[in-house]
Design a protein around this nucleic acid. Structure first.
Length: 255
DNA sequence: CCAGACGTTGTT
DNA sequence: GTCTGG
DNA sequence: CCAGACGTTGTT
DNA sequence: GTCTGG
C-alpha cells in the first residue's frame, strides 16, 4: 500500500505535467523524501469553473462526522488509504468518491516487504517510474488516485484532506507487497477528475486495468523498485539519501 | 428504540 | 498489545 | 507506513 | 451524518 512517499517536484513542473489550467496560488512545498500521514501534500482536482487546479491539503481523510479536532486528527491517521474494492460504499469515503476525486503526485513511494518469501520482512523499497522526470526530478511523477474532502472545525476553519486509493498489487510489485496505490494513466485523468461523472460503475472502471481496454499497459509496466536503507523508517529522517539504492545480501537479488 | 462504529495495514 | 504522532 | 509512548501527583 | 448490532 502506500503509507510513506517522496515528492520533490516543484509546482511549476507539476503544472506542466498535469496540464494545470488554474495555476497554483499557494507556497511551494519543500522537497520531501519522507512524506508522512497528516502532512501537507499536493493534489490535482477540478475546480468549480471546470478548470484543473493544483492545491495542497493534508494526507489522511478527516471523517466527515468528526465533532472536534481530536476526533478529526484521530480519524485522519486511520484513513490515509481507501480500498478501491470498497471505497464506493464505505460511509467515510463514498460521498467523496462520487464527487471529489483527485490525483496525488508522488516522485515515488515506499513499501516495506511483507511475508511473501522474497525479502526480509520490513526491508523498505522505493518504487518509482522507470521514465525520467522533468528538470531536476530524477523520475517521472506518479499520478495516484485519491479522494478529498472538507471538514469545518468549531472556529469555522476549513480543513481539506485526502486519501490515497489502494488496490491489489500486480506484476513484480506483488513480490514486495500485496497492496499498491492505484495509478491512473493520463488518458483517464479527465474523467477521474470530472465531478459530474457520478455513475459509480463508470468511476470504478477507471481504476481497473484488466477489463476495459487492452491497450492500457499494466500498472507495473513503467515502474521500477529497489531496496533502500531503513533510514526512512524514522519520520525524523529526511533527505535524498533516503531514496539511495542499497545492496541486499546474496539470496535477495531480483531487480 | 438507543449506542456505537464509521478506516487501513498486516498478522494470527 | 494498542494507540498516537509524524 | 514506522517509532515511540503507554502513568500520577503537585508545582512552576 | 448514516448504518449496524443489540
Amino acid at each position: 500500500m502506500c503509507g510513506r512517499f517522496a515528492l520533490t517536484t516543484m509546482p511549476g513542473d507539476l503544472i506542466e505535467e498535469f496540464e494545470i489550467t488554474a495555476g497554483y496560488s499557494g507556497l511551494p512545498l519543500p522537497s520531501d523524501w519522507n512524506v508522512t500521514p497528516t502532512r501537507q501534500i499536493y493534489a490535482i482536482r477540478e475546480n468549480a469553473n471546470q478548470q484543473r487546479e493544483l492545491t495542497t491539503l493534508s494526507w489522511g481523510m478527516i471523517a466527515p462526522w468528526s465533532k472536534d479536532s481530536t476526533e478529526a486528527l484521530r480519524s485522519q491517521s486511520m484513513a490515509i488509504n481507501a480500498r478501491s474494492e470498497s471505497v464506493h460504499e464505505k460511509p467515510t469515503f463514498r460521498n467523496a468518491f462520487r464527487s471529489r476525486r483527485c490525483l496525488i503526485p508522488a516522485s515515488g513511494y515506499y513499501e516495506w516487504a511483507t511475508e511473501l518469501g522474497k525479502y526480509e520482512t520490513k526491508q523498505p523499497f522505493f518504487i518509482h517510474s522507470s521514465l525520467p522526470g522533468k528538470n531536476s526530478d530524477q523520475f517521472k511523477t506518479l499520478a495516484l488516485a485519491g479522494i478529498w474532502d472538507q471538514w469545518v472545525d468549531s472556529n469555522g476553519e476549513v480543513h481539506e484532506s485526502a486519501s490515497i486509493i489502494t488496490r491489489e498489487a500486480v506484476g513484480f510489485l506483488a513480490t514486495v507487497h500485496h497492496r499498491m496505490p492505484t495509478f491512473l494513466p493520463v488518458d483517464r485523468w479527465n474523467s477521474w477528475l470530472d465531478p459530474d461523472l457520478k455513475n459509480i460503475d463508470e468511476i470504478r472502471n477507471l481504476m481497473n486495468f484488466e477489463i476495459p481496454n487492452p491497450t492500457i499497459a499494466a500498472p507495473d509496466a513503467h515502474l521500477a523498485a529497489y531496496p533502500v536503507a531503513t533510514l526512512v523508517n524514522s519520520t525524523r529522517n529526511n533527505g535524498p539519501e533516503l531514496i539511495k539504492e542499497i545492496e541486499l545480501g546474496e539470496s535477495q537479488t531480483l531487480f
